[in-house]
Amino acid sequence: MTYKGKFRVWRGDAEGGDLQDYEVEVNEGEVVLDVIHRLQATQAPDMAVRWNCKAGKCGSCSAEINGMPKLMCMCRMNTFDEDEVVTVTPMRTFPVIRDLVTDVSYNYTKAREVKAFTPPADLKPGEYRMQQVDVERSQEFRKCIECFLCQNTCHVIRDHEENKESFSGPRFLMRIAELDMHPLDAADRQHQAQDDHGLGFCNITKCCTEVCPEHIKITDNALIPMKERVADRKYDPIVWLGNKIRRRA
């Protein structure tokens, strides 16, 4: 069924902008990105929008639809009433470049700060051996498409720009958890997570999990287990004492 959908799309750049109203044709089976493309083709040829796969796998078309961080290509139009105004804005945690396109380089900076996989010094490439049961726990985290919706919705940086320097965000804390759970990783991830990447900022309100288009249980399976591992190393006097005695023995 075809109808005229009411859209409010943010247009502007870092200097300023506003929400502009459009009426666009919507057809059965379409997603928000289809309508944005039609808008671009028929009414706003200069509108900037980042997209690539249209299949929820490249993580390019992240935006906020009626205030919720979502992939435009995975948000179906039949989830809205026909007379509902659909508001589309760029992600509001990162600097805007133009219209719906933001500068997500903060995430690339944070990605570079995570120490790469570090095998034991006596293990050479080609000698890595591990059991499936030891690696499957962290394979969930490999589903991440780096859409950065979790980073965008995390209030630690969304509401507090000043925390960006010391907090890496759920995506990269999940990466650290993935490495820490790796059977052959020998780096000290617990101290790094807490001291260098700001795990202590996380108050596990689970918005990262709520918006993840890959349905990764970021909080329950990565951040909380990582917090418990940090507690082992930094805050649990009995575990600390036990480790001390074991090392002496």
């Binding site: 943010w10 919720m68 804005t89 509001r92 990162f94 600097p95």
Partner: peptide, 13 residues
């Protein structure tokens, strides 16, 4: 530098 949307939240739910 961020998009100045002018709404605290655009959530309608």
């Amino acid at each position: 530098g961020r998009a100045q949307v002018g709404l605290k939240t655009a959530r309608t739910d």
